[in-house]
């Protein structure tokens, strides 16, 4: 079966980029405790939306509702042109890479992909499988059983299973967790190129650098709520208000100044003389998170 969405046709017809995924006021409670509490967000075609939050923030629960696996207690999930993912047809538009890899250990990488291609209803499952396995760089190991794969290879295969049918919407739940820096870089490249081809990507992570580098938009999530979202620059403007200036003087330790006027601080320090080292740290998502939640992302 051909891809359910034809990006170029849609673009020509409407002339603007519609939302591929729309979450409105989602609530999910487990035993009365809200894991997701009134979350709304939109992901456009070609856009990578990073959902950033600490453990237990509700990222996977959100993804679970987006893929129709969990039924929201309130709110709605809309997939472009298809409505709720509860509908079989709407699920055709989904490519999913769950946080815990969903793979058959006793099948080879290619056999896994061929099987997933078949249940996706693809007309040429073998071709789709070998294309996808090449894309994640696992071609040479395609015929080996998955149980012989390293953690990073499993992650890559998990992602390959999500892109078999070139879906217009990718739901990737921590696709880089536990992957070494090299594999991580190639996975990020892959996600970026998928977005460039037109896919909308909802991407969860708790690596800030990754979110900052990869994502067009970032949502900061904590305790089931989306505290703010926007491009990294927008978030920094809104919440990363203080720049850190580190000044080192002769015979003294490093002095750390948090300020809204880093240029002023620097020129002051230079006028005072005896400066042996000077370092300015731009605020980052960590600072944003700190200012939004009052606690550090890393703990």
């Amino acid at each position: 079966m051909s891809p359910a969405f034809d990006h170029d046709r849609e673009r020509d017809a409407s002339g603007y980029l519609p939302d591929v995924l729309r979450l409105e006021g989602l609530v999910k409670r487990f035993d009365g405790v809200a894991a997701v509490d009134g979350l709304s967000l939109r992901v456009e075609r070609g856009q990578i939306f990073g959902l950033l939050g600490p453990n237990g923030a509700g990222k996977s629960t959100t993804i679970g509702m987006a893929m129709g696996l969990l039924r929201p207690d309130a709110g709605s999930v809309e997939i472009e042109g298809h409505g709720s993912p509860v509908r079989t047809e709407a699920r055709r538009a989904l490519g999913v890479a769950p946080q815990s890899e969903a793979l058959y250990d006793d099948l080879s990488g290619l056999e896994n992909l061929r099987f997933f291609a078949r249940i996706l209803g693809l007309r040429e499952p073998s071709r789709a499988a070998s294309e996808a396995i090449e894309r994640v760089g696992l071609g040479p190991r395609g015929r080996d059983r998955v149980k012989t794969y390293s953690g990073g290879m499993r992650r890559r295969l998990n992602l390959a299973a999500a892109i078999l049918h070139r879906p217009p919407l990718l739901l990737l739940d921590e696709p880089t967790a536990g992957v070494d820096p090299q594999s991580r870089a190639s996975l990020l490249d892959l996600v970026r190129s998928l977005a460039q081809e037109g896919a909308a990507v909802l991407y969860t992570t708790h690596y800030m650098e990754e979110a900052a580098k990869l994502c067009d938009r970032v949502g900061i999530m904590d305790r089931g709520r989306l505290l703010d979202s926007g491009s990294v620059d927008e978030l920094l403007q809104r919440h990363g208000t203080e720049t850190l200036v580190f000044v080192q003087r002769n015979g003294h330790g490093e002095e750390r100044v948090a300020t809204r006027d880093p240029m002023g601080v620097v020129s002051q320090a230079l006028q005072a003389g005896e400066v042996t080292g000077l370092r300015v740290e731009r605020p980052d998502l960590e600072t944003v998170f700190l200012s939004l939640t009052g606690r550090s992302l890393r703990d």
Binding site: V96, L103, Y104, F116, L120
Partner: peptide, 14 residues
Amino acid sequence: RRGTLLRLVTAPLV
């Protein structure tokens, strides 16, 4: 347990 049921459930199957 393996999580593969998730792929079956999210696939466009009845």
